[in-house]
Write a protein that binds this DNA or RNA. Sequence first.
DNA 1: ATTAGTTGTCTACACAAATAGACAAATAGG
DNA 2: CCTATTTGTCTATTTGTGTAGACAACTAAT
Lengths: 243, 243
Amino acid sequence: MDGQDDGISRWRRVADGIRASIMEAGVTDRLPPETDLAADYGVNRHTVRRAIAALAAEGIVRAERGRGTFVNPLEPRISYPIGTRARFSENMMRQSLEPSGRLVGSQKVSADMGMARLLGLALGAPLHRLDHMAVVDGVPLSRSTSHFSAERFPGIIAAYAQEGSITQALRRCGLADYRRRETRLTAERVSPGDADALSCAGDAIVLVTNAVDVDLEDRPVQAIRTRFLADRMELVFVNPEGA
Amino acid sequence: MDGQDDGISRWRRVADGIRASIMEAGVTDRLPPETDLAADYGVNRHTVRRAIAALAAEGIVRAERGRGTFVNPLEPRISYPIGTRARFSENMMRQSLEPSGRLVGSQKVSADMGMARLLGLALGAPLHRLDHMAVVDGVPLSRSTSHFSAERFPGIIAAYAQEGSITQALRRCGLADYRRRETRLTAERVSPGDADALSCAGDAIVLVTNAVDVDLEDRPVQAIRTRFLADRMELVFVNPEGA
DNA sequence: ATTAGTTGTCTACACAAATAGACAAATAGG
DNA sequence: CCTATTTGTCTATTTGTGTAGACAACTAAT
């Protein structure tokens, strides 16, 4: 197709480029005319048109015949604080957003080496695997997979299904409070299954957090892997004032 | 091309899928035969072959005629702690890695609204913009763009060019110590310019951190936006034991 | 040596992507 | 009203992607 053949069509690259200039460089009101964009990106005008059509379908721009192509006012990313207290519901409500958790699936599994180490259990220990999903104001934000000791939290699945919140479900299982010990962060392309559940594009990007929550005696409670849609989220880590 | 037309070719999606099964599901030694993969992904064998060729070019797998296709031993992601002390060089050396910073470019600019707010300066205040790049053991890891007050740190560009470290450059400008106040995190596709500088694929994913460093009197020192290559990095946030 | 299973290479064809050019339709400014 | 600019639509052509089938080359086990 071009010099570099990375399997991404030209119009998609142009669309990504224009999107980037809108997001980063902050192109606010109007895009350059199609002929100019075509010259900039070194492609045919029709290719630019297709790119713009894709962006219009995303709701990012709007083309008006005879006038030009304009950038729609974009909604800011939702902020999600990571730190000691990682409580989805509370954090969302603080931003006057309506959170809701949804059970997607559950399974009884046994601990492999990684899980056993993370949760401080024996190899092969029985676990509850809980797949859930976070929706804010009707918009899917993230998919998570939690692992709990089945011996310590036998009723966790049912409790979550009713409460729609990990914090509340753990409280019903007798755990008053917990804190986050560690969060590891990276980013990937969304998996096909997650793309389906989150109703996003198949090539969307997710922020992946692998974390461990512990009780007040520092015993592991859950290992949780969450995939946040990067274009709808922003993770924030704030250091305390006088540290 | 397929049901959903997102401008990503089929072999690229298959390649991404196989890469994901290697990374996540942990397919260690051998891939299923091409005919099986073709059936799994619902594509022709030739399409799978092209996907495998791309993965082979990335160095992830290696095909051997008559035997099969095998997964190459993969190097683990480099861990980068985010927290109060965000010092690239020190953090890398703690993992016995050889860090080095490189000046990519610099510019005198004036503060727009966002920068003025972040740095606590007046609108239009003179700034030094410093574009740099972090390389560890010869592998490019990240690109950063820093903004400093030109009045407070007039010699920062030259100092960085010589030292190759922000911490050292600030010390030469009379700042003994600083800390990170806030880190905001998201993820995007790499920009064409960064892809070129980091010598990575054009469709790679970067972890983006927007952060503000402050001196010991909590006055802003630099606003820094860093793009980490997600497949070479992992950001880690650890909470202190007794918090 | 034979056989089954696997990757490598070739040809051919259908279809999508990208280019090229021309012109219509709407807008804005003099 | 006229003109320049800009988006929308049409046709045609070339190049790339994916599918299909066949066969060669190599490996490992029987």
